[in-house]
């Protein structure tokens, strides 16, 4: 246990340079864009010079770049950074939108898992058969289908033709909040109608977002499983007289390390896909907030969202690293 604690502290310390690096790069890109954010925030061409000057003063826009960056980071850390567009503290805006995005990501992740893993296993067990070829083609389609195209296509099918989903607003959050993710809270507190409403609203965007990952995951599951099943210990299990299903369980557990790695990366990838998905499905989450901010040259928000995304990404990777040790006794911290 002490070793785990040490490992966690060491890893969390490595978060700091990673997150500083990511936010700094995003900030610098925004900084060098030849645009005048202050004017945009003040209201465009018609803004009075005094107002523009006041905004520049307030957001330290006349300072050198490093001072501006430090101002932004300090503002995020103390939650005193005000969104020039909404006039709310940036982190408050994000906090309101985060549950939508997180809920979307979780549902997408579940879709990726329940489609990708069985497909990969079927493909491995029926390797070099027609089923295998179909799964491979599916994987290729999965990675090469653009989210916005699939999104509109499925909206046409499930909303315009069959009305199985709805596309406006977001169902209310349950009264008692435990995890702050509405759909999980609804389930935990037993508000099943609310749970159903959330599911009805989120399943389609979740599927669209998760679809891209299913193909990659299926391929990974297939290959890792095949590699595991060709191990000598599998043959020894057969020689021991272990039934087939139990042998598959051994193989699956051995295949799990690469699968978990790719799952961690995919969870990060899902977050990267949220801006488009949320825009297509009109979900008021962090992704669409990021798009709006980019359109309005809203740099403080862009840096703050980058910060949150980076934090989620490194946390997902930390979870993956911990899972390695849970799966494989040879891995020590």
């Amino acid at each position: 246990m002490a070793e785990l604690k040490k490992f966690l502290i060491r890893r969390i310390l490595t978060f700091v340079p990673t997150i500083i690096g990511v936010t700094l790069i995003v900030f610098l890109i925004a900084y060098v864009i030849p645009a005048d954010p202050a004017k945009a925030w003040a209201g465009g061409e018609k803004a009075s010079p005094e107002a523009v000057e006041r905004i520049k003063e307030r957001y330290h826009l006349n300072d050198p770049w490093y001072a501006q960056y430090i101002f932004l980071v300090k503002g995020i850390a103390t939650n005193t950074l005000i969104d020039p567009r909404t006039s709310n503290p940036v982190l408050d805006d994000i906090r309101d939108r985060f549950p939508v995005t997180f809920q979307l990501a979780i549902i997408a992740f579940i879709f990726t898992l329940i489609i990708g893993i069985p497909l990969g296993l079927i493909s491995a067990l029926k390797r070099n058969s027609i089923v295998d070829t179909i799964v491979r083609i599916f994987a290729l389609i999965g990675v090469s289908t653009p989210v916005f195209w699939l999104g509109y296509l499925l909206i046409f099918v499930f909303f315009v033709k069959f009305r199985i989903t709805n596309l406006a607003g977001v169902p209310p959050t349950p009264a008692t909040q435990i995890t702050h993710v509405p759909i999980i809270d609804a389930l935990l507190t037993g508000e099943f109608t609310l749970f159903k409403q959330h599911l009805a609203r989120f399943w389609l965007p979740g599927f669209v977002l998760g679809f891209m990952g299913t193909g990659v995951l299926a391929r990974f599951v297939r290959n890792s499983f095949l590699e595991a099943i060709s191990g000598d210990y599998i043959e020894f299990l057969k020689a021991k007289g272990v039934p087939k299903l139990k042998i598959y369980r051994h193989a699956l557990k051995n295949a799990l390390v690469p699968i978990v790695t790719v799952l961690g990366l995919q969870f990060g990838g899902l977050l990267g896909g949220t801006p488009i998905t949320e825009t297509v499905f009109a979900l008021p989450g962090m992704g669409s907030y990021a798009i709006q901010s980019i359109q309005n040259l809203d740099f403080p928000v862009i840096v703050a969202i980058t910060f949150i995304y980076a934090l989620i990404y490194v946390t997902a990777n930390l979870v993956v690293d911990i899972l390695y040790a849970v799966i494989d006794p040879r891995v020590r911290y």
Binding site: G231, D232, Y233, F236, L237, H250, K253, N254, I327, D328, P329, R330
Partner: peptide
Amino acid sequence: DPHASLDPL
């Protein structure tokens, strides 16, 4: 090969 005959997990 005893190193390969046993499941490492």
